[in-house]
């Protein structure tokens, strides 16, 4: 694979709004993501602080992988917000996977608010070394 092969294109949140209205009164952010590819798999690393394994939803439909994370608003009883630099909200992002992957082998782990997804490549998409026979 050469460096400039882009097999995955991301969709921005604004584009997904066309599908309908959100039914939750929360902001929704596009999580920052690293995407890399090895010979046998594609890896997605998604920053989703505040999300735990129960509030996360990953679905693969056709060749679109959707990551959805719900985050409850942070509040501290008896305290009032005096200074704010960031806001919390849900996360949503779709990834268009352009190469065949083995759907049953998709694995996801969550640690310290970072989601790791491994999509193993289908046998047909794996890089094969072609032996050259001397004739």
């Amino acid at each position: 694979m050469s460096e400039d092969t882009k097999t995955i294109q991301t969709q921005e949140k604004e584009e997904m709004q066309f599908n309908g209205e959100r039914t939750r009164d929360r902001l929704c952010f596009i999580p920052r993501t690293d995407i890399y590819e090895t010979d046998d798999a594609i890896y997605l690393v998604v920053d989703m602080p505040g999300v735990d394994e129960k509030s996360i939803d990953i679905t693969m439909e056709k060749n679109t992988l959707s990551v959805n994370g719900l985050v409850e608003a942070q509040s501290f009883e008896g305290y009032s917000e005096v200074y704010a630099e960031y806001e919390t909200g849900d996360y949503q992002r779709n990834f268009s996977i352009q190469i065949p992957v083995n759907r049953d082998g998709i694995e996801a782990t969550l640690k310290n608010g970072v989601l790791n997804i491994r999509l193993p490549k289908d046998e047909s998409a794996k890089t094969k070394r072609i032996e050259i026979r001397t004739g």
Binding site: P49, Y79, E85, Y86, V114
Partner: peptide
């Protein structure tokens, strides 16, 4: 509220009352 500019990394939110203060930050990973 969407144009909040953090003064540095990590961005911080501060909650307070007369008894104390709570500081939060997002540090994934």
């Amino acid at each position: 509220r969407r144009t909040l500019t953090p003064g540095g990394y990590p961005a911080m939110n501060i909650y307070s009352n007369t008894e104390g203060v709570v500081v939060t930050a997002e540090l994934p990973g």
